[in-house]
Design a protein around this nucleic acid. Sequence first.
DNA 1: CGAGGATATCTTCGCAACGAAGATATGTTC
DNA 2: GAACATATCTTCGTTGCGAAGATATCCTCG
Lengths: 109, 109
Amino acid sequence: MREPTFLILTALARAPMHGYGLITEVAELSGGRVELRPGTLYGALDRLADDGLVERDREEIVDGRARRYYRLTDRGETALGAEVERLSHTVRAAQARLSARATQRPAVA
Amino acid sequence: MREPTFLILTALARAPMHGYGLITEVAELSGGRVELRPGTLYGALDRLADDGLVERDREEIVDGRARRYYRLTDRGETALGAEVERLSHTVRAAQARLSARATQRPAVA
DNA sequence: CGAGGATATCTTCGCAACGAAGATATGTTC
DNA sequence: GAACATATCTTCGTTGCGAAGATATCCTCG
């Protein structure tokens, strides 16, 4: 699972959202570092739906424009949880290596 | 940057290593979750070398077999640090969402 | 001694996710 | 009426990875 997909699931963990809403939400979530393109977004949503991690929710018409909402499934929640677990282990390992390295080879001696 | 690449940089943060050593080291680092294949490993090393994040270190002959060591460059250390920073933000955001969701929709009511 | 497994390198090829780009359409703002 | 924000979706190229295998040496076990 790559970062855009991970962030889409994370965004949907709070509440069902529609595509365009996900673009802005993911941008916020990531501190502006990830700006989803439509190709990435809709490709990921289709894939996640195929995998049963998200589902089509309701559809709304707001100001004459359709909004298609997606929601996280239970399987999606489980998958996201597993990915978080995995990532936090990896991050901790890397942090430990980097601080050990800083001790061994201090930038400022 | 994807997980195999991230783990290769993390492994090299401790000390220079050769390819085969990286395979076992990354497996350990990841708790056995990531088993590098040669195609992944040498492809990543070539790419990282092109990007200046790792460098060829010394070469040793041990028991008649060549060992080509790679080391993390300063740029590589910086890149790894940035990636760790980025990931830890993302992970924290996801953890917050997941626990909020658990409060809203407890699995055990 | 021969087979198999561990150590060690590297290449080829296909796939999946992403990113760039753009098509389409409505509403709002200047 | 031009430009921008909202909202959908498609096409196509790139990239990193994974599967598979080629090559070679050393060690262990029967």
